[in-house]
Design a binder for these strands. Structure first.
Lengths: 218, 218
DNA sequence: ACTTAGTTCGAACGAACGTTCGAATTACCT
DNA sequence: AGGTAATTCGAACGTTCGTTCGAACTAAGT
């Protein structure tokens, strides 16, 4: 009988050594996660029912439970995947960049770009923050803490390099506020794209945080 | 038979002309709203059940419906009262202050002070933003828009008085982000009080938004 | 003491919730 | 073609949801 229902298997399928790293199962799960993300974004985690997910994804109610054992675990999968992706992209983008200000600008751009390209996922991430219970919540909280620490590091570097007497904690949390709040107002048909917004927010934030007036262009 | 269930009556009670403006009904309703705000804050609007409210407030499930006709109307009452209060306080604080920068600092302080003093209410306000349906939602959205317009006005004044080439819309929304995000992180036992935070956020934001370097003390 | 209006409650309603189960269907390997 | 494992589904489970109703209780005016 089937029913793995854990979504933790990676590639345990058949004795195939060919370079296709994705099982049918993985692909279908990812597809469902996309639908679920969109529905959670639109109706909220509590407000969205499993029947909504079923209708939207075209899979039967019972069928969904073949891929995860509970609604809470589904939210966990979404949050973990989203967060892990954004952290990993950030790290690769920061590689080889030394200038402190430039690194912060990269942080902002990476955050906003991913935020706007995956608005649904990020809204679920910011909005359904505290609903995961102890087991699942801890793991997501750990990734989030790592992301937060990275930003603290970037700002401390800037403080060391340039002047600036500010509380790093408050500065970081203010920056996150500026960026994350975007899910409440951004309208793709009216507002600029991620790069422009990242530039302007970067200007406001960096000018606000540094005493040294020097802003280098390019 | 009783059951007004509209919560719109103000003082239609008895032929009393004495200066007591509060009926028993009004007082009890306000009391219930306080409990409900706290529960909505802790479990979210969808996540909190009427039975939770009943247990927490000590009033029976059916008894609650004497004071409002639906759960949605309850949320509406909370949001409207909270928002109306903060706008009204802001207007009175701004009276007689002419300096553009000072007015923005007052705006920030007023927002954060009320936010931290009524964290539960404000979290419900920011977090349960889009759940009200067309009827109720429109009225709350109107107050919110007024609040937003006030802030836009303050910033345009600043732009006129000092320099600064920034998009007012993006600046205002960034400021709101900085301030509103506080509900996700502020811990009264660790973090500073509203006045200190307002000062520091004001520094970051105003320095970030102005080209003129001049910050006047006191 | 009696009346009346204002307030509270226990018990129940139908609907929707998350989840389960065994059977049916599909895809893959020999 | 036949067999085994992976996948999907209809139907139902017990629970909880928001809301309602009529009776009971309380406070106030005469």
């Amino acid at each position: 009988m089937g029913s793995p229902s854990t979504a933790t298997r990676v590639n345990s399928s058949r004795h195939r050594s060919r370079p296709v790293p994705e099982t049918r199962y993985d692909r279908r799960l990812a597809e469902i996660l996309t639908y679920a993300t969109e529905v959670f974004c639109r109706k909220g985690y509590e407000g969205a029912s499993m029947r909504d997910l079923s209708r939207e994804s075209g899979m039967s109610l019972a069928g969904l439970y073949y891929y995860f054992e509970s609604k809470e675990r589904l939210l966990y999968l979404i949050q973990k995947h989203t967060f892990a992706t954004i952290v990993q992209r950030l790290k690769s983008r920061l590689e080889g960049v030394a200038d402190a200000e430039e690194r912060i600008r990269i942080f902002i751009l990476n955050h906003l770009e991913y935020f706007l390209a995956n608005q649904a996922a990020m809204k679920v991430l910011s909005h359904e923050d505290e609903v995961l219970k102890n087991g699942f919540g801890a793991e997501v909280a750990a990734i989030k803490r790592e992301y937060y620490r990275i930003c603290v590091g970037l700002l401390d570097d800037l403080k060391r390099e340039r002047g600036g007497q500010f509380s790093t904690r408050l500065a970081v949390l203010s920056l996150f506020g500026m960026m994350n709040w975007i899910y409440t107002w951004h309208n793709p048909r009216v507002d600029a794209d991620a790069a422009s917004i990242a530039n302007e927010m970067g200007d406001i934030f960096l000018r606000g945080v540094m005493t040294t007036k020097g802003r280098r262009e390019k």
